[in-house]
Amino acid sequence: MRYEAPESLEGAVALLAGATGEARVLAGGTDLLVQMRADIVDPELIVDIKKIAETRAVTEEQGGWRIGAAVTGAELKEHARLKQAWPGVVEAANLIGSTQVQGRATLGGNLCNGSPAADSVPALIAAGAVATLAGPQGKRDLPVEDVMLGPRKLALRKGEILVSFLLPPRPPRSSDAYLRFIPRTEMDIAVVGAGVSVTIDGAGTITAARVSLGAVAARVLLVPEAARAIVGSRLDAAAQQRLETAARAACQPIDDKRGTTEFRIDVAGVLTRRAALIALDRARAN
């Protein structure tokens, strides 16, 4: 098993493109190392991307924020301005694993692990985040909702790596929130995750919204029907009901050790409503 830690994107891309056997990108390692230990993966090449500057930076760009794929949850938590602009994204990232895991786990890894239950992904999708990929043919941008195709299946081509995410500029009176359901208070994988981003006008009416659900289908879902259910409303009881119904209608979950189909559908509605109310409160304060 080879380990490489290139200092440039080009170097990383060349290594991955040239790999003969299975190659894996190492960012935080909190999924990869577990899978290696469990004999689920046995890569020939590991490419550690943490020495590449672009993957490690959080910078303002075009009024929005660019977050490197290898920035850890703990680093995001300490970024006060990012947290102010995108509290839902940061709180979602901070829900991944324990304090120890936060010291390592990254946004890029959370997406590229290819799990429909990844906590940060619904928040990123709700935020309208765009992923920047680099590959042998150069860079390209892909909306986050289009990066994951199914469990462990990504839209990344051979030799391509996820470099960073771009969060759009935050309009006035706008905010986001993420909630997940787990049986314990910490340390579980999401049974349902719900990310909501809303913008309101001066009268408190929702003018734009994005809703995303995790762990209720083979991939993290963007649910435009749920967003439509609340746009134009002030999230009154009727709008909340419409939102819940639309969120539930989008779910196509499985029964597994973490929850039943029925449970996931029920709770998806509840969490979407609760997350929307939090996002709305935050938007009012902005």
Binding site: T72, Q100, V101, G103
Partner: peptide, 15 residues
């Protein structure tokens, strides 16, 4: 690790 709390079982020695 560099002042961050981590699980050493989730870090490679070569890192």
């Amino acid at each position: 690790l560099d002042g961050r709390l981590v699980c050493s079982c989730l870090v490679l020695g070569c890192e």
